[in-house]
């Protein structure tokens, strides 16, 4: 399915919207998938330093074909380049940056997010699956601002915003904000609060696709959602 036929925001639009929340001077860790696109849309004039768990601060976009280096990769094991001011460090230091609260933002995907900020993004708990957690639990437990970008529902149409997660948790009570195909949701003390809604999507459709009570902000506005051009700094 192409972005154009999907109701609500495209992947690029979700990434663009999340990028608007990243302030100048932030240290940021981006998860695999849609979150990786966020780097393309950070507004001009803001300098952001990207961290990858396997030991690089200040990496840049993928290299030209033929310039890949197997020792210069990101946590998704994809080739990257270095920007001026980059640094290498070992794994214990890398996770000290995460667990020690030195990384300002992590933006990651999720299987489920609950109204109390619980997140499940590492396992469905299915019998016979090979369990694999990687750095997911360290990131959500350690980074100060945990933001999630996800389709509002699964491919099968099941809600991903839940009253309580049914999958095994990655961490309890850590998510602050969720960007979905249908809008921007803050996780508040009283549950999900719809702050911004995708153009052309009625609130009732959002409510029907959400398996938790949904409050709507008095100041509800439409997501400013251009079909974004990639920023020049990180294409």
């Amino acid at each position: 399915m192409s972005d154009k036929t999907r109701t609500g925001l495209s992947r690029a639009q979700m990434a663009w919207r999340a990028a608007q929340d990243i302030p100048d001077g932030a240290y940021v860790n981006l998860g695999i998938g849609i979150p990786e696109l966020v780097a393309d849309y950070v507004p001009a004039g803001r300098e952001v330093v990207y961290h990858t768990e396997n030991g690089i601060l200040g990496f840049g976009p993928a290299p030209e074909p033929g310039q890949e280096d197997p020792d210069l990769i990101n946590a998704g094991k994809k080739p990257v380049t270095l920007l001026p001011g980059a640094a290498f460090f070992h794994h214990a230091d890398s996770f000290a940056m995460i667990r020690g609260g030195h990384i300002d933002y992590c933006i990651l995907g999720a299987m489920q997010v609950a109204a109390n900020g619980d997140i499940a993004n590492w396992s469905t708990g299915a019998a016979g699956a090979i369990p694999a957690v990687g750095g997911a639990m360290d990131l959500v437990a350690g980074v100060r601002n945990v933001l999630v970008i996800t389709e509002h529902t699964t491919r099968e149409g099941e809600p991903k915003l839940m009253e309580r997660c049914s999958y095994p948790l990655t961490a309890p009570g850590v998510v602050k904000r969720v960007f979905t195909t249908f809008g921007v949701f803050d996780v508040t003390a009283s549950g999900f609060l719809l702050q911004e809604i995708a153009p052309g999507v009625p609130v009732e459709q959002v409510r029907a696709a959400t398996a938790a009570p949904l409050a709507v902000a008095d100041s509800l506005k439409e997501v400013a959602a251009p079909q974004p051009e990639k920023a020049a700094a990180h294409v």
Partner: peptide, 29 residues
């Protein structure tokens, strides 16, 4: 199965003569 940062820190602690430590990673899971 060990979370990646916990794995790195368990190894570092082993090398540093620290027998155990407390981490927020994995709490409540």
């Amino acid at each position: 199965l060990v979370p990646q940062g916990t794995l790195a820190e368990r190894i570092r602690a082993g090398g540093a003569g620290v027998p155990a430590f407390y981490t927020p990673t994995g709490a409540g899971t």
